[in-house]
């Protein structure tokens, strides 16, 4: 893990970790360990990372939404991982900020729609810092720049403790999304880099993301003692 971001927020006992670029399965194992920690009374965690290229399938994903053959994916070294989150097919790759909040919704609201809404708000506020005006589309969870999708969301909840989370395209190589039908939809993806016309510093993005995440989830919750 990268030491720069690792800290404990004393106000509400958040543990924040930057995992830099981490294998998807390793990140998943760490999340599940953190879920057990929170279930045992540990305060919330915020994990920030990027993944090497990987395609993930949510529980009800349709494999036909992967648009190239298994052999071609193998040749490109892109694994496909079936995973216990909501949503359809998605893709992670370097340049995409992946945000995994592990928190107990019993300390906020036992409401999945509320939680998804707050995750969207974290991304909306973050992107506003880069002067990117985003919107929500009714019935289509995620964050959009006009008709292009910039943020994908898929979460898991175990005994009201959250895992999985947000994928925000910062400097992502967008042609990779041609390999899939993102979320099973006919949509184009975009990124901060595409909208701004230049790449942005991922560490700056992580710092801002941490700030918004802790602010938004501090407002709706209370201290876990």
């Amino acid at each position: 893990m990268c030491g720069i971001m690792t800290e404990k927020n004393r106000d509400n006992q958040w543990t924040v970790e930057d995992w830099d670029v981490i294998d998807y399965n390793e990140a998943y194992a760490r999340q599940k360990a953190a879920v057990q920690g929170v279930l045992s009374g540990h305060g919330p965690y915020l994990f920030l990372c990027e993944h090497p290229p990987v395609i993930t399938l949510g529980r009800l994903a349709e494999s036909r939404h992967i648009l190239i053959s298994a052999d071609a994916l193998k040749q490109r070294g892109i694994p496909v991982v079936a995973i216990d989150r909501g949503g359809d097919v998605t893709l992670h790759a370097p340049g995409q900020l992946v945000v995994y909040p592990i928190l107990n919704l019993k300390n906020y609201r036992r409401d999945l729609r509320w939680y998804l809404d707050k995750l969207e708000q974290v991304a909306i506020d973050l992107l506003k810092d880069f002067d990117i005006l985003t919107c929500r589309l009714p019935g289509r969870t995620g964050v959009w720049v006009e008709s292009k999708k910039i943020v994908s969301i898929g979460v898991g909840v175990k005994q009201w403790v959250t895992f999985h989370g947000l994928a925000i395209n910062i400097n992502t190589a967008l042609p990779l999304f041609n390999l899939i039908k993102p979320c099973g939809l006919d949509v184009l993806m975009t990124s901060v880099q595409q909208v701004q016309g230049a790449a942005v510093d991922m560490l700056d993005v992580k710092r801002l993301c941490q700030r918004h995440c802790l602010r938004i989830f501090a407002a709706g919750g209370h201290r876990i003692s």
């Binding site: 216990d84 989150r85 729609r113 939680y115 995620g142 979460v155």
Partner: peptide
């Protein structure tokens, strides 16, 4: 599963 969330 509902919307983008799984609930165990």
């Amino acid at each position: 599963v509902t919307d983008k969330a799984t609930f165990i």
